[in-house]
Amino acid sequence: MFKKSRVFASMLAVGALALSACGASNTSSDSGSKSNDAASSKWANCDMHKGVKDASSEKADAKKDITIGAFNGWDESFATAHLLKAVLEKDGYTVNIKAFEAAPGYTGVAQGDIDFLTDGWLPVTHADYLKKYGDKLEDLGCWYDNAKLTIAVNKDSPAQSIGDLKKMGDKYDNKLIGIEAGAGLTKQTKKAIPEYGLDNLEYTISSTPAMLAAIKKSQADGTNIAVTLWRPHWAYAAFPMRDLKDPKGAMGGKEFIHTFARTGFQDDFPKASQIVKNLILSDENLSSLENVMFGDDNFAGKDNDAAVAQWLSENPDFIDQLTTGKL
Rank of each mutant, 00 (worst) to 15 (best):
H49V: 04
G295D: 10
A21P: 11
D305S: 15
V227G: 12
I319F: 04
Q111V: 02
A309V: 10
G92M: 03
R6M: 11
V276M: 14
V124G: 01
A99G: 03
P158C: 10
V153A: 01
K187Q: 13
I68A: 00
L322F: 12
F2Q: 15
S40H: 13
A307N: 01
G222R: 07
I280K: 14
D113K: 15
E195I: 10
F100V: 00
Q310Y: 12
G51I: 01
D267W: 11
D145C: 11
G184K: 07
V292A: 10
T263V: 11
A13C: 09
N72H: 12
A39R: 13
N174C: 08
K254N: 14
F71R: 00
F265S: 05
A102R: 06
K171R: 10
N36K: 10
W234A: 09
S157W: 03
G163W: 04
A213K: 14
Q266K: 12
S207I: 03
G249D: 09
A55F: 12
M48T: 15
S20C: 05
P240W: 12
N96R: 13
N200D: 02
D145R: 15
D267V: 06
A238S: 11
K217Q: 14
T323L: 11
D135S: 15
V153Y: 08
M241G: 06
G32D: 15
P232L: 09
P194Y: 07
Q321F: 12
I151E: 01
N298G: 00
F78Y: 07
S218R: 15
P104D: 09
H233E: 12
L289I: 08
S29M: 11
A99S: 12
I162E: 05
G249W: 10
D156N: 13
F100I: 01
P270S: 09
D128S: 15
V124Q: 10
N200H: 07
L165A: 05
M168N: 10
L19F: 09
A39G: 13
F71S: 01
G182L: 02
A159M: 05
T67G: 03
K191H: 11
A237K: 07
K326T: 08
D128Q: 14
S206R: 04
T80E: 04
E314N: 14
G32A: 09
G264Y: 06
L244E: 02
N200P: 04
T94Q: 14
A110H: 10
A127L: 14
H49K: 13
M251D: 04
F256L: 09
E89R: 03
S77M: 03
P158D: 08
L140S: 08
P232A: 04
V95D: 06
T67Y: 09
L229R: 00
W234N: 12
S33E: 15
V109I: 14
L149P: 00
S10W: 08
Y93M: 01
L201N: 09
K50N: 12
